[in-house]
Lab assay of single mutants.
Amino acid sequence: EDTPTSDDLEQFAKQFKQRRIKLGFTQADVGLALGTLYGNVFSQTTICRFEALQLSFKNMCKLKPLLNKWLEEADSS
């Protein structure tokens, strides 16, 4: 899998936040949902820092596919 560039991550974080708000989920909701879906719960702080691009590049890269999958799930339900 290609490592995203920081531009990709920035773009995704922006879109993710917009979609999340549009779908009516809080950052805490997302963190809990990730726990339900993938077995690891993320704190509201982590989601907040992802959206604000304040996590390390490595952590951003790790979270992106999970959040992307969550968006697909949320969109289809």
Score class of each variant (00 low, 15 high):
23 L>Q: 05
5 T>G: 11
52 A>S: 13
11 Q>L: 11
62 K>Q: 13
18 Q>I: 06
22 K>Y: 05
67 L>K: 02
52 A>G: 10
61 C>S: 07
70 W>H: 00
57 F>W: 07
50 F>G: 01
24 G>H: 03
41 V>T: 13
17 K>V: 05
36 T>M: 09
1 E>Y: 07
13 A>W: 00
31 G>T: 09
44 Q>N: 08
2 D>N: 13
77 S>R: 14
44 Q>M: 08
57 F>L: 10
39 G>N: 12
35 G>W: 06
9 L>A: 03
7 D>V: 13
64 K>T: 09
46 T>V: 09
55 L>D: 04
46 T>G: 02
30 V>W: 01
77 S>H: 12
19 R>S: 07
31 G>D: 04
12 F>D: 03
77 S>A: 15
49 R>C: 02
57 F>K: 14
47 I>A: 01
62 K>Y: 06
25 F>A: 07
48 C>F: 07
20 R>P: 00
28 A>W: 05
64 K>Q: 10
49 R>K: 14
20 R>F: 00
17 K>D: 00
72 E>A: 12
55 L>F: 05
5 T>N: 14
75 D>V: 08
47 I>F: 01
18 Q>N: 05
43 S>L: 03
1 E>T: 12
75 D>P: 09
66 L>N: 03
21 I>C: 06
74 A>I: 12
65 P>L: 04
28 A>Y: 09
73 E>P: 04
49 R>I: 00
73 E>Q: 15
60 M>D: 00
49 R>M: 08
53 L>H: 12
68 N>T: 14
29 D>I: 03
77 S>W: 09
24 G>S: 02
34 L>D: 01
3 T>G: 05
8 D>I: 04
50 F>M: 03
4 P>V: 15
27 Q>F: 04
21 I>H: 06
17 K>H: 05
23 L>S: 05
64 K>N: 00
37 L>M: 14
61 C>Q: 09
48 C>T: 10
65 P>Q: 15
26 T>P: 03
28 A>L: 07
76 S>N: 13
45 T>M: 08
57 F>P: 10
74 A>R: 11
35 G>C: 09
57 F>M: 11
35 G>S: 14
67 L>T: 04
26 T>R: 03
12 F>L: 01
16 F>R: 02
49 R>P: 00
38 Y>R: 06
62 K>D: 11
2 D>I: 13
54 Q>F: 00
63 L>D: 01
40 N>Y: 12
8 D>N: 14
58 K>C: 05
29 D>A: 06
15 Q>S: 13
18 Q>Y: 05
5 T>P: 08
40 N>A: 11
13 A>G: 02
16 F>S: 01
16 F>Y: 01
1 E>G: 11
65 P>S: 04
35 G>H: 10
3 T>Q: 10
72 E>W: 07
71 L>T: 00
10 E>V: 14
71 L>I: 04
64 K>Y: 12
18 Q>K: 14
7 D>N: 03
27 Q>N: 04
20 R>C: 00
30 V>I: 06
11 Q>S: 11
73 E>T: 15
76 S>Y: 08
31 G>M: 05
74 A>E: 10
18 Q>F: 07
41 V>G: 13
42 F>C: 12
76 S>C: 10
5 T>Q: 10
76 S>D: 14
33 A>S: 09
43 S>P: 09
24 G>D: 03
47 I>T: 02
54 Q>H: 07
61 C>K: 11
71 L>S: 06
20 R>E: 01
33 A>H: 13
48 C>D: 14
73 E>A: 08
22 K>T: 08
28 A>G: 09
59 N>S: 13
1 E>L: 09
17 K>T: 07
66 L>W: 08
77 S>F: 08
70 W>Y: 04
44 Q>T: 12
13 A>H: 03
28 A>D: 07
52 A>M: 10
6 S>P: 15
72 E>Y: 06
35 G>M: 07
56 S>F: 00
29 D>T: 04
57 F>A: 09
68 N>M: 05
24 G>P: 01
15 Q>T: 11
27 Q>M: 04
43 S>F: 03
8 D>H: 11
6 S>C: 15
41 V>R: 12
70 W>L: 03
58 K>T: 11
15 Q>D: 12
48 C>E: 15
40 N>K: 12
45 T>A: 11
58 K>F: 07
7 D>K: 14
48 C>N: 10
55 L>W: 02
63 L>S: 02
18 Q>W: 04
37 L>F: 11
32 L>Y: 07
52 A>E: 14
29 D>E: 11
24 G>E: 02
52 A>V: 02
37 L>E: 12
52 A>L: 09
10 E>R: 15
61 C>G: 05
54 Q>T: 10
69 K>T: 12
69 K>C: 04
38 Y>K: 06
4 P>T: 15
31 G>Q: 07
30 V>G: 01
69 K>A: 09
18 Q>P: 00
11 Q>D: 09
10 E>M: 13
2 D>P: 08
36 T>G: 10
17 K>E: 04
38 Y>G: 10
2 D>E: 11
20 R>Y: 02
27 Q>D: 04
53 L>Q: 11
58 K>I: 08
40 N>R: 13
63 L>T: 03
34 L>I: 08
23 L>D: 01
40 N>W: 05
50 F>K: 02
39 G>D: 10
4 P>G: 12
55 L>Y: 05
69 K>V: 06
41 V>H: 14
46 T>Y: 03
38 Y>Q: 08
12 F>M: 06
57 F>T: 13
35 G>E: 10
42 F>Y: 14
54 Q>V: 03
47 I>Y: 05
64 K>V: 08
43 S>I: 01
16 F>G: 01
25 F>L: 10
65 P>T: 10
70 W>S: 01
19 R>D: 05
11 Q>H: 13
56 S>D: 09
52 A>P: 01
17 K>M: 07
47 I>S: 01
13 A>Q: 01
47 I>C: 01
23 L>N: 06
30 V>E: 00
2 D>H: 13
63 L>Y: 03
33 A>L: 05
45 T>V: 10
67 L>G: 00
39 G>R: 06
62 K>F: 08
50 F>E: 01
29 D>N: 06
1 E>N: 15
19 R>F: 04
75 D>H: 10
41 V>W: 13
60 M>Q: 03
7 D>Q: 15
12 F>W: 06
4 P>F: 15
11 Q>F: 10
23 L>F: 04
41 V>A: 13
75 D>A: 13
44 Q>F: 04
64 K>F: 06
68 N>W: 13
21 I>F: 04
55 L>K: 04
29 D>V: 02
2 D>R: 12
6 S>L: 14
20 R>K: 00
58 K>P: 09
66 L>Y: 06
25 F>W: 08
56 S>L: 02
11 Q>P: 02
68 N>L: 13
49 R>E: 14
76 S>P: 12
56 S>H: 05
16 F>L: 03
60 M>Y: 02
73 E>K: 15
37 L>Y: 08
25 F>T: 02
67 L>A: 03
33 A>F: 05
55 L>G: 02
13 A>E: 02
20 R>M: 00
4 P>D: 14
57 F>G: 06
22 K>Q: 12
24 G>V: 01
46 T>I: 09
9 L>W: 04
36 T>E: 14
47 I>P: 00
68 N>Q: 05
67 L>D: 01
28 A>V: 06
64 K>H: 11
28 A>N: 12
25 F>S: 03
52 A>D: 13
38 Y>M: 05
55 L>I: 04
66 L>S: 04
67 L>V: 03
77 S>C: 07
40 N>I: 11
69 K>S: 08
43 S>H: 13
58 K>G: 11
45 T>P: 06
23 L>M: 14
74 A>M: 10
68 N>A: 12
3 T>D: 05
36 T>L: 07
34 L>A: 02
48 C>W: 09
57 F>C: 03
44 Q>V: 09
20 R>D: 00
19 R>A: 11
3 T>L: 10
43 S>C: 11
3 T>K: 12
61 C>I: 10
56 S>G: 09
38 Y>A: 10
46 T>H: 06
19 R>V: 07
15 Q>N: 15
29 D>G: 06
66 L>M: 12
45 T>N: 10
51 E>A: 00
42 F>S: 06
